[in-house]
Structure formats: structure tokens, C-alpha cells
Amino acid sequence: MRPPGAARARIAWWLTICVAITVALTLGGLLVGTTSMHTSLRWILAPGAQSSIVLWDIRLPRTVGAWFVGALLGLAGAIAQGVFRNPLAEPYLLGTASGAALGVTVALYASGASVGALAWAAQLGLAGAAVVGACVAIVITVALARGVLQTSNLLLSGIVVGFLLSAVTSLLLLTKPQMWRTMQVFLLGSTGYLSWSSTSILAAVFLVCIVPAVLLSRGLDALTLGEDTARSLGLSLPVLRLAMLGIVCLATAAAVGEVGIVGFVGLVAPHLVRETLTVNHRHLLIASPLCGGALLQAADLVSRWIIHPAELPVGAVTACIGGAYLALLLWRRTRDA
């Protein structure tokens, strides 16, 4: 009764391709920067003191950090889609990302510090504020949707909450013009601030999120059979939902706390997995982060490349890709309906 050989072989192929793409994108992340490709290549082949700082302390943590951010968002999206049994649920559309951003803004506003180049403790404090903001946002969204979670009501409430919280963020920033410039980059989503310390926070949060998520993944499988059936199987739905949404908030908050609002990775990654693999939730919760990580690395590369040597906010790139993908999904759903 194990999964048949063909399905396992397909998963193995998928993993191989995904890892290969990630490795290629990581190399790309080392090569692309303000210098020309030639210079970057020479740096890698013949490292010097200054070049190794650029490569290993600026470009590599940025690329690896971007992977973790994408992985966290991919995981959060996959979980949200399972918990709400709604294929369009994801951190950005649920308002959690805006909530986390508001949390960060409030913390910075209160402390008077600015984004980037913060000490460990300050970064942890920011992450905490982001978690609180994300939790508040998801509670409001679910309350507004009045528990009707499978329908577009949930997404409408999420979008409303997202708008409202973003508006509050903007209002706060307007009263402190000196914060406005740095925060604007942050709110559009930027991988530019990622350092080894922020990358290690992201890695730690990723581990803390994915282990319980995979252990509880059978609950999401059971939930696809309907709430009553899931309860009749001996599952405690409140515990499952609380744990899973806690993970969604933590993952979203960590990602937003480090790079700002990066939308749609959480939507696209699980969908790409489902389109290429037949998966249960255990597979989905492992594959979506892998896919999301590669996606954000790719978006990061594009954002650094497209107007080289200047760069775009990565959030703008994911919004373009993700928005187009969402439009495609909607078009397909209305066509099939």
C-alpha cells in the first residue's frame, strides 16, 4: 500500500530538478550585482580580500536569505490553503503580510531605529512585533469572514484587512518623514538588507515552522474530506487550526520582518507543486518551500538584473509574476465553471 514506484520516481525527479535550479540560482546570485559578470566571475575564480567580502558577506547571504524567505512564504501559503480549504489563500491575500509590516513599522516608530543593520536583539524584537501584527491581522480576517472560510468571503476580508493595515502603516510613516525613505523600500519588499545574522534567524524560524507543519500534515489531509469527517477520525480541529495558523503567522512575520512585503510567492509555489505532482499534504508542505525558495531567488535575480546596475524592489517583481498568475488562475476557474 506504499505509493507506487512511478509516483515515487516522479517525486525524485521533481526534487532533483528543483535542487538543480536552486543551485544554479544561487550561483547566479553570486554573479549578478553592481559589478559586471566578468568581474564577478574573476572574483570567484581568483578571490581577493575585498572581493570575498562582496561575494561571501553581501551576495551569498542575500541569495541564501532570499531562498529562506521564499521557502517560508511557500510553506505559509501551502498551510493556509489547506487550513482554509481555499486554493487562493496565502499570506499576502489574507492580510497577514500587511499585519506583520505594520508590526515592524510600529516597533521602529516607537524605538526610533531604522531598518537594516540592526543588532541581533533588535532584529528579534522586530520579528516579535511582526508576529504580533500577523496574528492580529489573521484574527480580524477570520472574524470578518465569519468563519465561512472556503469561499471568496475570506479573500475579500483578507484584502480589506490588508488595505486597512497598510493605510495605518502609511499614516504612521507620514508623521515621521525621516522614516519614510527607508521604509518605502522595505514596504515594497527588498532583499537588499539581508545579512548572515538575518539569514540565520530566517533559517531557525524555517526549521521551527516546517518540522511541526510536516508532523501535523495528515490533519490537513483529513480536512480535505470535510470538517465532520475529520472530527469523526479523531482529530481536534481547534488544535490543528491554531497550530497551523500559528505557523503561518510565524513564517509570514519572519519573512516580512526581514525583507518587507513580498506578495504572491505563497500563492504561486503550492500551485506549481500541485500542477506538477500528485501530492498529499506531507509532500506539499515539503515541496512548496523548495519551490518558493527557488521562486524568490529567481525574482531576486530578476530584480537585480533588469535595470542593472540599479535594482528593483523584489516585491515589485513577485507582484508582477504573482499577479499575472492569479489572473491566469481566475481566468481558468471562470472558464471551467
Binding site: R218, D221, T224, L225, L233, L235, R274, N280
Partner: peptide
């Protein structure tokens, strides 16, 4: 559900 038939039946063993 997008689960396979065997996976659905296996959920019966959760308890």
C-alpha cells in the same frame, strides 16, 4: 479530494 484512494482509506487509521 486530491488525495489518492489509498491515502483516503489510510486516514481511517488515524485514531
Amino acid at each position: 479530494t486530491d488525495l489518492t484512494a489509498a491515502e483516503v482509506v489510510a486516514l481511517g487509521r488515524f485514531a
